[in-house]
């Protein structure tokens, strides 16, 4: 691998946090993700269908918010450094919602000959409610080599 652009293991402390606020969710952003991902479930783009299914209006795919979360994790820990990423969807995300992705380092350790960190992850809306909770493990480069 070439020169890393992201965090070094030595520069990370347990408890260190990182966050990323995304622009408000729009129907256009939802449709754009539908096209890019191939998720054409009409509950995400057909307002009449969504209402008929008992929703107030269309809502975003969970994986759109998870994509935002992967953006946070990539910028912070390096997209090539991920070892595990897991997340659960906790609430629906609606047009107009403003999502903030947050990560906190929980543990630094060595495993499988790598220097690794575990972080807790959360995506929350403008009311502080969790849309996603999750966790990531990444292997970070070291300055020592």
């Amino acid at each position: 691998m070439g020169e890393p652009l992201y965090l070094y293991f030595e520069d990370v402390a347990e408890g260190a946090a990182h966050s990323l606020e995304m622009p408000p969710i729009t129907r256009t952003a939802i449709v754009r993700y539908a096209g890019a991902s191939g998720d054409f479930n009409p509950v995400h783009h057909d307002e009449l269908y969504a209402i008929r299914r008992g929703n107030d209006r269309v809502f975003a795919m969970g994986m759109l918010s998870a994509g935002y979360l992967s953006h946070l994790v990539g910028d912070w820990l390096g997209p090539g450094n991920l070892r595990n990423l897991s997340f659960q969807f906790r609430s629906q995300v609606w047009p107009g919602d403003v999502l903030t992705c947050k990560g906190v380092i929980k543990r630094k350790y060595e495993a499988s000959g790598e220097r690794r960190v575990d972080a807790d992850l959360r995506v929350e809306n403008q009311r502080g409610e969790a849309a996603i909770v999750g966790a990531v493990t990444a292997a970070l480069p070291t300055r020592a080599r």
């Binding site: 269908y49 299914r53 929703n55 969970g62 897991s86 997340f87 659960q88 969807f89 996603i132 999750g134």
Partner: peptide, 14 residues
């Protein structure tokens, strides 16, 4: 087809 309506499935996570 996801939604809060009863009996339907929704995406749990990965």
């Amino acid at each position: 087809q996801g939604g809060p309506e009863g009996g339907s499935g929704f995406d749990g996570g990965r």
